[in-house]
Nucleic acid binder design. Structure first.
Lengths: 115, 115
DNA sequence: ATTACATTTCGTCGATTGACGAAATAAAGG
DNA sequence: CCTTTATTTCGTCAATCGACGAAATGTAAT
């Protein structure tokens, strides 16, 4: 059984990781920005992003002190692209997602990192 | 957070339930036919199908002694349809799925139900 | 070189999940 | 009506998972 596909579904089977993916539809984020919006600990957020990365749903790049995470919209995997696309048109009026969207607009790593 | 979407991902986060969905792409099946192919207990299979049904991925109809399960390709939910479609074009050369496909062709409730 | 900062990893805990066998349920078949 | 059959539900167990704080790591900034 193809472990990658199971990993994708597992990655998205958690509400907080779904929220992260919806946030990353908006823009690239670092761990502490995600932490700020989700109100979880740094370690928990880091673990969530690691799971999403391992599933191939997000990419990570280093920029100064920050590791930036982006949605992997150009994945080699057609399956991953199809899932990301399906999610893009979903949860559009979900209350939690809408609230997160506003928070993503406001959050600024230069004001909040460290803790 | 929309519980239905989480349910869909959770439902598909288990390898055996993925196998069931791929089997149902072929044809409608009853519990004992799925049991035969997956080599799991009746109760486990029943539970798996219940989870898939609750997520909106499969439909169930009663026919004589049997409850038949089918893939919900005409779901009201565009999201569910997109996921089913994404899976349709995935796992096409997966060894386990290919083996299951052959077994589905052979399995016959009139010869195997009961335990 | 040292310090500061952002992230990752580790260990622990309580909750959840997939497996099973037994019991219960639904209803077809005789 | 009674028996048989197929399925569902229940209870238990071991494994996994998401949360946390602390420790470790990587490296930019000074």
């Amino acid at each position: 059984m193809d472990r990658q596909i199971v990993k994708v579904f597992r990655a998205l089977a958690d509400p907080n990781r779904l929220r992260i993916v919806k946030m990353l539809e908006q823009r690239e984020l670092c761990v502490c920005e995600v932490r700020e919006v989700l109100a979880l600990s740094n370690s928990t957020v880091s673990k969530h992003l690691s799971i999403l990365h391992d599933a191939g749903l997000v990419t990570q790049t280093k920029e100064a002190r920050w590791v930036n995470y982006s949605l992997n919209v150009k994945s080699e995997s057609q399956f991953v692209r199809a899932i990301i696309s399906a999610l893009k048109s979903s949860l559009l009026d979900d209350e939690t997602v809408l609230k997160d969207t506003k928070s993503v607009d406001r959050v600024d790593r230069n004001k909040i990192c460290r803790v």
